[in-house]
Amino acid sequence: MSAVLVAENLRRTLPGVVPVTLIDDASLVIDRGEFVAIMGPSGSGKSSLLYLLGLLDVPTSGRIELDGEDTTAFDENRLADVRLRKLGFVFQFHFLLAEFTVLDNMLLPMLRLGRLDPQAAAERAHGLLALLGMDGHSHKRPGQLSGGQRQRVAIARALANDPLVILADEPTGNLDSHSAANVQKILRTLVDEHGKTVITVTHDAAFAGRADRLIGIVDGRIDPHWVPPTLAPVGIQATPKSQ
């Protein structure tokens, strides 16, 4: 398998009177079609690492290569273009636009990219909603859906532009156990059946157990020896892949 995402010596420091280091010297390689879970104690820098890998935040030093493209020198607009074409995001909160219907929410990234005409985009949106068991809800507004349904729409939206990598920040954090299990299953299916790469941050050891690989992070540093106690029995090691 070839690498889709390569991070080298990432450091992210928040400037200030007392600078705060969020991520310190993080290096990792993620392959195409891999399901990676990032875990660690609260405040350890899991989300910060995800935002760096998702090109939402810019590292203070280090480099990130996505799909063979070095993004180090990219300005804000080029990073946005890469996100639009190659990345999809799912957050703990669904972040659907409340005034728009489910279909309109789906159409936004597709129309912004402009790869499909509006009719083809609508067809694709309906297809994705069907894939996630949300067909028949396209005309509804987010307020008319349950938490689990909203998150499924958010996942469908993340898939709208057929991204290489889906980045999920605690996507099951706000869901009941049934909905959470459903979302976990969907993400796993995306990897297994659709060849997507999924990187997820989670506190849920059971969810992390579904991943191919676990990356442990402690105090902003990737810790290859960190194993969450609940995962130890199943033998998943928290190890980043070396390049």
Binding site: N77, A80, V82, R83, L84, R85, F95, L97, P109
Partner: peptide
């Protein structure tokens, strides 16, 4: 602001 953040995370430019 949350909608703006999500639109930007999707790939909308500041000028959009």
């Amino acid at each position: 602001t949350r909608d703006i953040a999500i639109l930007k995370s999707m790939g909308f430019h500041a000028r959009d």
